[in-house]
Design a protein around this nucleic acid. Structure first.
Ligand SMILES: [Mn+2]
Ligand SMILES: [Mn+2]
Ligand SMILES: [Zn+2]
Ligand SMILES: [Zn+2]
Lengths: 144, 144
DNA sequence: ATTATTTTTGCAACATAGTTGCATTTTTAT
DNA sequence: ATAAAAATGCAACTATGTTGCAAAAATAAT
């Protein structure tokens, strides 16, 4: 985990590396992502940040982080949009999150299974594959 | 495809098999699904149905079809919800759509690749798998 | 075929989610 | 310290989804 001070430094570095201004909103939201063990959605952030930020700012911050390759989206079958921090390999407009996502039906959390690779899929003739998303649902390690 | 008459009979039978009342809304929406070569979202249905049905009715109809195993959802990374007709194996509260979904980045359509099976995935120790969703994005057969 | 019962629909009203323009504030560059 | 650039907050708006209830339609019973 690291001390509060270390986390702050790490987050600041991450923002600077992405050529983003270091602002309170961005620091706070990134901190929430770092602390969380699962993916976050917009409403989680609004709640956990303690109603200190405008909704619009949160939307714009998430979009900025997406653009810069700091976070990635996770597909869902409801209308919610889930976000999780990317690994270091990701960069602006070039995401490399080729791992499986897991949604626990018990606790509701969605996590990145960074070690679980996505297997090969052979599409029918004529289809070109650019990206594969895999979301597994079931019961997680903690809830079992 | 079949004639208009044949499609009507087929749809009527499907509704009766699912123990649903045969109504104009349900006939029309099922017809749209049958005619469409890809998945539909709520707005597609409202548009294509020619503003004849109330929004609420469309929502409720889709939910009913989901419950009865007539359609299934397809995960997305935006807030949209996509639906496609299930194969015959599906029944009430017991979906069996273990196929890959494909989203074309060119034409935007999402299709069920019924013949493309979902490969085995080995999760980390402690995780129980109930369902797997796979969505591939790229360029489809038609757009290539 | 008529009537009774059950189900579905449409409307209104509401709630939540997401977007855009613009003035003010904050951050970064000079 | 000042100027330039960028981010934020607010207001106003659009889109999406939900609930209760009365009217209408579909099915079941007579
Ligand atoms: Mn992930
Ligand atoms: Mn499908
Ligand atoms: Zn869990
Ligand atoms: Zn296409």
């Amino acid at each position: 985990m690291g001390t509060k001070q270390q986390i702050t430094e790490k987050i600041t570095a991450l923002l600077k590396d992405s050529k983003l201004s270091v602002t309170d909103t961005r620091m706070k939201i990134l901190e929430l992502f770092m602390k969380s063990n699962g993916a976050l959605e917009h409403s989680d952030i609004e709640t956990q940040a303690g109603q200190s930020f405008d909704r619009v700012t949160v939307y714009r911050t998430l979009q900025t982080f997406l653009d810069k390759g700091i976070i990635h989206k996770i597909p869902t079958t409801d209308t919610s949009v889930r976000y999780a921090v990317c690994k270091s390999e990701c960069s602006e407009h070039d995401h490399h999150d080729h791992h499986v996502h897991f949604k626990c039906e018990s606790c509701g959390t969605t996590t990145c299974l960074d070690e679980t690779n996505i297997p090969e899929i052979s599409l029918p003739k004529g289809y070109a594959m650019h990206n594969v998303e895999v979301v597994v649902s079931g019961v997680c390690k903690t809830c079992k």
